[in-house]
Amino acid sequence: MNAREIMTRDVETVSPDDDVGEVLGRLARADFNGFPVTEDGIVVGIVTQGDLVDLFQPSGRTLWIPVGFPPFLESLTYAVDISWDKLDFGIDIARNAGRPVSDVMTEDVVTVGPKADIDELLDLLADEGQDINRLPVVDEAGALLGIIARQDLLRAIKLERDGE
């Protein structure tokens, strides 16, 4: 099996110019926790919930991040320690309103080609030093072809072991 056989082809992406609030709202409704950032189909970064939560300077209690504009009908919940006396949440929201994803995305994205085998994928997704949860699959020019999440790889390994 290789990356082309395992990857999800229909990938939701964001643009470097997208507003962090909008992206956080999309993540609140998604079944995953990160988006490849693309420009003209080329992968230029990756943004995760963790990247966006860092904007609110979390440090132990529970943090609810309102999504969208008032009235906040949705929220993301994170079990983090907040120093409430040092954090004026309203100011953080206002300060980050309109901020582009390019300000918080990871630019040095680990990607794989469509022919990458299971061992290469496993090495990357199991590397504790990198802590990668998803691998964009790109062609030689860096154009996004698909994405492989850890769960996709685990499912593929199980299917291979089961002989399917």
Rank of each mutant, 00 (worst) to 15 (best):
D19Y: 05
D19E: 14
D19G: 09
D19L: 03
D19V: 05
V20W: 09
V20C: 09
G21V: 03
E22N: 12
V23F: 07
R26G: 06
R26T: 03
R26K: 15
R26P: 09
R26N: 12
L27I: 07
L27M: 12
L27F: 08
R29Q: 13
R29Y: 00
A30V: 02
A30G: 08
D31S: 14
N33T: 14
N33G: 15
G34T: 08
G34H: 07
G34I: 03
F35P: 08
P36M: 01
V37W: 01
V37F: 00
V37S: 11
T38C: 14
E39P: 04
E39H: 07
D40Q: 12
D40F: 00
D40L: 03
D40M: 02
D40A: 13
D40R: 12
D40N: 14
G41H: 02
G41Y: 01
G41Q: 10
G41S: 11
I42S: 07
V43E: 07
V43K: 03
V44Y: 02
V44R: 06
V44D: 11
G45D: 07
G45F: 01
I46W: 02
I46G: 11
I46E: 08
V47N: 04
V47H: 04
V47E: 05
V47A: 06
V47L: 02
T48Y: 05
T48K: 03
T48V: 00
T48F: 04
G50C: 00
D51A: 01
L52N: 09
L52A: 04
V53H: 07
D54N: 15
D54I: 02
F56V: 11
F56K: 09
Q57R: 14
Q57S: 12
Q57I: 06
Q57V: 10
P58V: 06
G60P: 01
R61V: 02
R61L: 01
R61P: 10
R61C: 01
T62V: 08
T62S: 12
L63N: 08
W64H: 14
W64R: 15
W64Y: 13
I65T: 03
P66I: 00
P66H: 00
F69T: 14
P70R: 04
P71W: 00
F72D: 02
F72R: 10
L73M: 12
E74M: 04
E74P: 02
S75D: 03
L76M: 13
L76H: 04
L76Q: 11
T77F: 02
T77Y: 03
T77P: 03
Y78I: 14
Y78L: 13
A79M: 10
A79N: 13
A79Q: 14
V80G: 11
I82E: 14
I82V: 15
S83Q: 13
W84N: 08
D85H: 08
D85T: 04
